[in-house]
Design a protein around this nucleic acid. Structure first.
Lengths: 222, 222
DNA sequence: CACGGACGCGAACATGTGTTCTCTGACTCA
DNA sequence: TGAGTCAGAGAACACATGTTCGCGTCCGTG
């Protein structure tokens, strides 16, 4: 996860102070506007004396594989790392809240299309291509042993069959509650292991658990 | 947080067939390249006979509030709906790992400009404008009472003075370790309250704690 | 029909913008 | 010391690109 951003296949070239400043300026500009800066924008923003110097350094950045330019085209600077890392964010539907004692709300087609519903933005690289993931907000601290607190947001991917060790959301029929645990199949029963290693696992018959989704990620905001 | 994405506020103007085609073309172009198309790109792509017609229709789209243009600037077309949905991700530097018994690595200018360093993408709306935030990866499970496990990533904002109740990273001089806790000033000592309400707070003299940053968010990936 | 407005066409125009050329200074290496 | 390279300054150049203007077509109205 969070792949490092280094030079492309090309040899690792040291970037000069000025080149780093320019690169950072391009990043900031892209944050503010929806289009890249021109050479003269960079010249002003980085207090460079001449456009030729900007061009000179851009060639350096290009050779280092950090950016890509299209000749003869205005403002045609692409940041390679951004393109490589999967196009920013994916917006997944926030289908509701989850609390102990309630089953997980199931995402419907409604959730995917409608704009009446809150959405959560998740960096694409955290999802690893799970395009049907959805989010739930956790209510109460019953998930505390999964290191999930009240208010946290959990990203889930629909799944019915899972591998040992996966963190999953399971509905426990007899207990009438949903919980987040690492799952291990042991014969005709399953072991549900809390993420918090100081707590004890619970064992339940296999037919009593109903996997509702695999946990892909968790977000918490202070 | 996580504002929902709804329609524009401006008056609803019917778009002509041509305007819809142009708008769609701009969207597609933005997907492929990292910069907007020029008027002549649109002309070719939508098979319009003249650049003036493109300009004419762009004015219409602008009046409808669908796009925004900057005069006298090449390729300065912004899609309003995209901008409204929170500007995607912000890339913050991953300055290193944090473990009990070690002080927090302090972010330097190096981290912000250099591309030698790993970066983490965080949805912009989780940062709330904290443009100097940085990230550390947690090593070991010593932060378990803050609901932070080995491998988790914590987003911090540099801060020396903080308000009661803030979750902060503090360096405890006598214990020689860094920890994540909610902080409360109580006279000349401070109470450090674990995020995990089942655990007990610790009390230390005020001069023994050194705030290293305020916790903005935490990310975990399965 | 005359008229005006919406829409489109093509070409010229003006400026934005990438590119290139020459000249300098600092540094390395033989 | 002199050739060579790197990094930069400044100016000019050439093309890319936004803008404008005159003209034509279609349509609904008086």
């Amino acid at each position: 996860m969070f792949a490092s951003v280094r030079g492309e296949g090309a040899g690792v070239v040291e970037l000069s102070e000025r080149q780093r400043r320019i690169l950072q300026f391009i990043r900031n500009w892209a944050e503010e506007h929806d289009f890249p800066p021109s050479i003269r924008d960079i010249q002003q923003g980085c207090q460079v004396s001449s456009t030729s110097v900007v061009d000179y350094n851009l060639r350096g950045l290009e050779r280092a594989g950090v950016i890509r330019r299209h000749r003869e085209v205005s403002r045609a600077i692409e940041l390679c790392d951004r393109a490589a890392r999967g196009r920013g964010v994916i917006s997944v539907p926030l289908v509701g809240a989850i609390a102990a004692g309630e089953p997980l709300p199931v995402p419907t087609a409604e959730h995917w299309s409608s704009d009446e519903i809150d959405r959560v933005e998740v960096p694409a690289n955290m999802l690893r291509g799970a395009h049907d993931a959805f989010a739930v907000r956790v209510r109460g601290s019953s998930m505390i042993d999964a290191l999930i607190d009240d208010g946290d947001i959990v990203i889930l991917q629909p799944a019915t069959d899972v591998s040992d060790g996966d963190m999953v959301a399971v509905w426990l029929r007899t207990r009438q509650e949903t919980t987040l645990k690492h799952i291990y199949h042991e014969g005709n029963r399953v072991r549900l292991q809390p993420a918090n290693s100081t707590m004890q696992p619970i064992y339940v018959p296999a037919h009593e658990v109903e996997v509702q989704g695999r946990v892909v990620a968790a977000l918490r905001q202070a």
